[in-house]
């Protein structure tokens, strides 16, 4: 939001000339949006994204303060820097939105996702699936003689990697929560 930090007198051109158009580099940002948990609040946020043509890569939402009725919405979105700024400003305009944090620019964040992964198989494939699960620290939360349900937590990349490995071993179904994120440090 702030102006370009060009020292007064250091250039004769306006900043407009230095950056003639907005950058078209696509960036992925994780936003944490604290909202009043009232009916329709999620529809407002999603409606903003669809109505203005922004992307949602992942979205998680749950009430985090049961007494204050506030929910935390974590949105991973992709766009040019200007679009990301617009998204934040537009989110800030929604009346029940209290705070918008761009975790990607605010000093980094811890991002985790939980996935449940159902794999069918017998014999060697079944053993291999178990072995890989062990390496990924995935837990078995359901088991039959022909299938497992693994629970895995980690970054989206780790979940992706595990899912890719399970595919040839008999992947049946995947359920993912989307990213939950908190900024690092205080």
């Amino acid at each position: 939001m702030s102006a370009l930090n060009i020292k007064k007198g250091s250039t004769k051109h306006s900043a407009y000339n230095l950056r003639p158009t907005f950058s078209d580099v696509q960036e992925t940002h994780t936003l944490a949006v604290l909202v009043d948990n009232e009916p329709g609040v999620l529809a407002r946020v999603i409606g903003l994204f669809s109505g203005r043509g922004y992307n949602i890569d992942s979205l998680t939402v749950a009430e985090v303060d049961h007494e204050g009725h506030t929910s935390r919405i974590t949105i991973v979105t992709t766009g040019t820097p200007q679009v990301i700024e617009q998204i934040k400003a537009q989110l800030g305009r929604i009346v029940p939105v209290h705070e918008v944090h761009d975790l990607t620019v605010e000093g980094g964040s811890v991002e985790r996702e939980l996935a449940l992964i159902k794999v069918e198989g017998a014999g060697d494939k079944r053993v291999e699936a178990l072995r890989l699960a062990d390496i990924f620290r995935a837990q078995v939360v359901d088991s039959t003689l022909e299938s497992f349900v693994f629970q895995i937590t980690g970054t989206p990349e780790k979940v992706d990697a595990f899912v890719d490995l399970m595919r040839p071993l008999g992947l049946l179904e995947v359920a993912r929560t989307g990213v939950a994120a908190l900024s690092r440090g205080m």
Partner: peptide, 10 residues
Amino acid sequence: DPSSINKVIK
């Protein structure tokens, strides 16, 4: 309105 700033013109 903060969203008006830098929406179309830098």
